[in-house]
């Protein structure tokens, strides 16, 4: 494995996860935009040290500010990287958008449904199994600040593989996927 990038929206807990995974110490705070430059560390995956990069938060791969530019450049330079996509489980829509963008570019992805506790408290129920089935990549609920789900996340990194988005569309079900594929002449 070449490198692992931690990516996701601002303030979903990437830095907290980074500290958990590497035992390193980067500043984590509860506001968007804490990390404005990338930070590197090493983590153990299946007995091997792999470089892990804490990438600044980004909403999409079309950068809007300096920190997002750093994030997108990072992804483009690391063609062979595996991406851990960190989502705020209490509002996964925006995170999923980024997941799809990264999948479209052909990167192997693992999804961490972070802040699982917050989602539970605000009565948001996510069927992680079903999500995993649809996306075709590992999906692991985590609570980074408490260390929950971290072991499982690490154990499933090796299962990350590139996925075809057409397949994702197909797996969202029914005949409706046809309309999505054919709209705009795709």
């Amino acid at each position: 494995m070449d490198k692992i990038l931690l990516m996701g929206q601002a303030n979903v807990g990437k830095s907290a996860l980074f500290n958990r995974l590497t035992g390193a110490r980067v500043i984590e705070s509860n506001y968007p935009g804490t990390t404005v430059d990338y930070e590197k560390g090493r983590m153990l995956v299946d007995g091997e040290y792999v470089e892990l990069v804490d990438v600044p938060g980004t909403f999409s791969l079309e950068p809007k500010d300096g920190a997002e530019e750093v994030a997108v450049r990072m992804l483009e330079e690391e063609k062979r990287a595996t991406v851990i996509c960190v989502l705020d489980a209490s509002k996964i829509e925006r995170g999923l958008y980024l997941v799809l963008e990264i999948l479209e570019r052909g990167y192997p992805v693992v999804v961490a449904l972070n802040m699982w506790d917050v989602a539970r408290d605000s009565k948001v129920k996510i069927d992680a199994k079903r999500l995993e089935q649809i996306l075709g990549v590992p999906v692991v609920p985590t609570v980074a600040v408490q260390g929950e789900g971290i072991k499982q996340l690490v154990s499933r990194i090796s299962e990350a593989a590139p996925v075809k988005v057409a397949g994702v569309i197909k797996r969202t079900g029914g005949e409706k996927w046809n309309s999505l594929l054919t709209r705009d002449g795709t």
Binding site: V124, I126, R130
Partner: peptide
Amino acid sequence: MELTIDQRWDLVDRITKETVEVGA
């Protein structure tokens, strides 16, 4: 394959409909 922005949001919508349940 690259989706347009709208298609991507459509797809996000479908996925969340299948996987997320928001309680009271």
